[in-house]
Nucleic acid binder design. Structure first.
Length: 856
RNA sequence: GCCGGAGUGGCGGAAUGGCAGACGCGCGGCACUCAAAAUGCCGUGUCCUUCGGGACGUGUGGGUUCGACUCCCACCUCCGGCACCA
């Protein structure tokens, strides 16, 4: 049967079975050729001012090898949201880039000699190729890698801005050193005393390093959680704990002999009268001076050396006995004038507070242990005992509340009341004040590695530390021969590059040879997408202010602290520089769970990885994407199963076959528009019986899928609703083809199924929809459920006796409570259960159930 | 130790005080077929049953409620984060 092309508005299906490869290639070519997902910035003619903006972003990938299933999940989830929002009328920005600097490429270079740039760019090609085959709707016109000079030029520029404002500074500090990677690590990159990346035990070293003053923003980082629309509670909690705010007081203890003041931070100024000794950390700068000239000098030096050798891990061991040595000096307790001995002990940490503490053994477990170990006095100053905590007959230590004792004029007071009075009193004597302390430390950004953005600083004997002038950026990464680090950055070997003129005096100077932590690169990339080609500025402010903040950010929960907090810090600092209105980068955050296989994390060594490329070859991208969204709520992890993926392939095939059959058996009629755009009269009101049932199911699916996709992110149940719609259509179609209303209902139901599936299986959905409606699905608005069709004429009334299900009967939707009760009482099964009993209470919930409470 | 989150069929999961187990996987049956695959349809928590139905059932124990997977209290197990943070 030859039909002239002009008479066939919809292309007819070809072949006799679902061929994802052909369909996916077809649509990808269309989207590519037409730049379908490119979106214009304000200020250019194509800009659409009428649509509200939505910036949908997944965390940028680190390009190493090929993408894995975790990437597939992130981008499947993000793309579903991007598609959904586009069809809901938003102008959606959905860009892509690569976090291209970093250690794996460099370690690869050390073992193979392949330039990190080559390995990285090869991998970028592989990633790009996969993303295209997955059909992710990316605006490719904004793509970049953070290793490109046109990008890291601005990373360096931001470094200089931070330096200008005193937010980047260099100083010597004890730092965490990974001997395997031969570089320092940020505090956040040390997990249980081991390198986050390679697992090697880290060492402490004292080095001159660059830091970003994230601690300046500690309070804002806490306060601005208020500005976020929706972040997972656990991520907020993790950051809160990481920042670790505690309120207390700073109290000064004085060492008379040396005329030195030692401020300490305490959260318990109410226990000051119980301080029986004083402890400083081994790294405390005054330790040497304190011990000098005393008979303990030698012992102290030995102890300090020993604890410097001890690893962070050893020091943190839980069961470890407390150790320390006396310094042979005393300080004066400001509340009672008592002279108490000073110790040096490694249970006190230099990094927190002032590196010195007042020890109150009666009310602090650690001080208690130390006092017991060295036989020091323990003086109770607060009444009470906690049996869980107490370790002796006195009920000590005790860290709870109670009446004060042994505390001079505060005796008999409630410790909570005394708290403020003591701080006030110390304040008036100038020996103390209220204080807040944070656990958060400054962000160490220097890395003694090659493959990163060079720190744009020059050292000159005359002028000291000199920032590279902006017009000399970027400081290009030089080519070198030997990547292996030797305790110094490999860049130090590029002598021609290191030697440079001082930008200030023109004399001889040397470049900083450390590069920046790659987390610096990824702390602002979401801003560069907005104006990626700009050579004059990092971004135009009006463009950034239009798109920012990111409306929906998507990524793995493993970045809950590091990346997400650094990016928040950057945006706050950039805001304060006047470069940005936004105070927070990501208004909404979605963290997806990890996909496992056979219950275990996927890893090459375990041999249980799933290669997305292989599965795309086998089932097509639509199947994979839909399966991943169907495995369970994306926020949770899920266990991969080949059978499950096959099930989705079967479902998509089923929809494909249905679409093909419906396109053949029903007429599009004179109206080639999308079914949901057709006049309501032709598609609903006249429908009755099975046609009406099917239409109601379609509208139910629209309603359910829409609410499940956003704001619930419950894609698995949205897909299940489409499956139900397809099942219902299969059940009813053969009874409906024969009359026009019925056929229209089948056509509508099938097109609606495709329409709702589009965010997950865009290629197949576009294909089926084209057959049925002759339209491009992504140009159609998201369907809206008709409330009239969501309402049912009748429903199943549940009848319970004493809360137990006894019958179900179909009733009119508008039946009154009395009628419902009457119907309930008539039920034979209900009567049997009521036999010989008196109904004492009747619960009627119209639309749901009747519950008869009977006694006797 | 502290702070989060979770525990539901053979499996992944659904159900935001109202029919527990939607949807999918797996399994069983029927149709189509010479046959198989594919496809379509039906069934599938456990136990009892006179086949009408009944009892039990969401980690454990208690509580609130006409009614609890859902809310409250205590406990057990697992997962994640932090951990000598004064």
């Amino acid at each position: 049967m030859a039909t002239p092309e002009t008479e066939s508005p919809s292309p007819q299906p070809e072949g006799d079975r679902y061929d994802p490869q052909a369909i996916e290639r077809k649509w990808q070519l269309v989207w590519d050729a037409e730049n379908t997902w490119v979106v214009a910035n304000p200020g250019v003619p194509e800009f659409d001012a009428s649509a509200p903006k939505s910036y949908v972003l997944e965390m940028l990938p680190y390009p190493s090898g090929e993408p894995h299933v975790g990437h597939l999940k992130t981008y499947s989830v993000g793309d579903a949201i991007a598609h959904f929002r586009r069809r809901r009328g938003f102008s959606v920005l959905h860009p892509m880039g690569y976090d291209a600097f970093g250690l794996p490429a460099e370690n690869n270079a050390i073992s193979t000699g392949e330039h990190p740039r080559e390995a990285t760019e090869k991998s970028i090609v592989a990633f790009r190729e996969q993303f295209r085959r997955w059909g992710i709707s990316i605006d490719w016109s904004r793509e970049f890698g953070t290793h490109e000079p046109s990008y890291y030029r601005w990373t360096q520029w931001i470094f200089l801005k931070l330096y200008e404002r005193g937010l980047a500074h260099r100083h010597e500090a004890p730092v965490q050193w990974c001997p395997q990677d031969a570089t320092v690590l940020a505090h956040e990159q040390v997990i249980d005393g081991h390198c986050e990346r390679c697992g090697t035990l880290v060492e402490q070293r004292k080095l001159e390093q660059w830091f970003f003053r994230i601690t300046e923003y500690a309070q804002q980082l806490l306060d601005d959680f208020e500005l976020l629309e929706s972040w997972p509670e656990n991520v907020v909690t993790m950051q809160r704990n990481w920042i670790g705010r505690s309120e207390g007081a700073e109290v000064t203890f004085r060492c008379d002999e040396l005329e030195l003041d030692f401020p300490v931070f305490t959260t318990r100024p109410d226990t000051l009268f119980g301080a029986t000794f004083f402890v400083v950390a081994p790294e405390h700068p005054d330790v040497e001076r304190l011990a000098a000239g005393t008979e303990k000098e030698r012992a102290v030096r030995d102890y300090v050396n020993e604890s410097a050798r001890a690893s962070a891990e050893e020091r943190a061991e839980e069961e470890r006995q407390k150790t320390g040595v006396p310094l042979g000096r005393e300080v004066i307790n400001p509340v009672n004038g008592e002279r108490i001995p000073i110790f040096v002990a490694d249970y006190v940490l230099m990094e927190y507070g002032t590196g010195a503490i007042m020890a109150v053994p009666a009310h602090d477990e650690r001080d208690y242990d130390f006092a017991k170990a060295y036989d020091l006095p323990i003086r109770r100053v607060i009444e009470g005992a906690d049996p869980e905590q107490a370790r002796d007959d006195e009920g000590l230590p005790y860290s709870g509340d109670g009446q004060m004792v042994n505390s001079g004029r505060f005796d008999g007071k409630d410790n909570r009341e005394a708290y403020d009075e003591i701080v006030d009193w110390l304040g008036s004597e100038d020996r103390g004040k209220p204080a807040v302390n944070y656990r958060l430390r400054d962000w160490l950004v220097s890395r003694q590695r090659y493959w990163g953005a060079p720190i744009p600083i020059v050292y000159c004997d005359q002028c000291g530390t000199v920032p590279v002038p902006e017009d000399q950026l970027p400081v290009l990464l030089p080519e070198i021969e030997e990547y292996a680090p030797r305790g110094k950055s490999p860049l130090a070997a590029a002598e021609d590059w290191v030697r440079t003129g001082c930008p200030s005096c023109g004399g001889e100077a040397r470049r900083e040879t450390d590069t920046m932590d790659t987390f610096v690169d990824s702390s602002w990339y979401f801003l560069r997408y907005l104006d990626p080609k700009n050579d004059e500025q990092c971004w135009a402010k009006e463009i950034a202010d239009y798109w920012m903040p990111v409306d929906q950010y998507i990524g793995g929960v493993e970045h809950a602290i590091l990346h997400l907090m650094y990016a928040r810090f950057f945006v706050k600092a950039l805001h304060d520089m006047g470069l940005l209105e936004a105070r927070e980068p990501f208004a909404n955050l979605f963290t997806q769970g990890m996909i496992t296989r056979e219950g275990a994390k996927m890893s090459k060594s375990r041999g249980n990885t799933v290669s997305p490329a292989e599965y795309v070859d086998r089932f097509g991208a639509d199947t994979l994407r839909t399966y991943i969204c169907f495995m369970g709520p994306p926020i949770k992890g899920g266990d991969w199963s080949d059978e499950g993926a096959e099930g989705i392939f079967r479902f998509l095939s089923r929809l494909w076959r249905l679409g093909r059959e419906v396109a053949e058996r029903t007429e599009a009629g004179g109206d080639a528009r999308a079914p949901e755009a057709q006049p309501r009269a032709t598609r609903e009101t006249s429908a009755a019986g099975d046609a009406r049932v099917l239409l109601a199911k379609a509208h139910w699916a629209i309603d359910k899928a829409t609410r499940d996709i956003e704001p619930r992110f419950q894609f698995n149940t949205a897909i299940a609703a489409v499956m139900e719609l397809v099942n219902e259509t299969y059940r009813l179609k053969d009874r409906l083809y024969d009359d026009a209303t019925g056929a229209a209902a089948v056509r509508f139901a099938t097109a609606t199924a495709a329409s709702l599936l589009f965010p997950f299986a865009p290629h197949l959905a576009a294909e089926v929809y084209e057959w049925l409606a002759g339209e491009r699905l992504w140009e159609q608005p998201w369907p809206e459920a008709d409330p009239a069709l969501l309402e049912r004429d009748t429903y199943m009334l549940v009848i319970q006796v004493n809360g137990k299900l006894r019958d179900r009967i179909e009733v009119e939707s508008d039946a009154s409570e009395e009628q419902l009760l009457e119907l309930a009482r008539q039920s034979e099964n209900v009567r049997r259960h009521l036999d010989g009993k008196a109904v004492v209470k009747e619960i009627v919930v119209p639309g749901r159930l009747v519950n008869l409470v009977a006694k006797g």
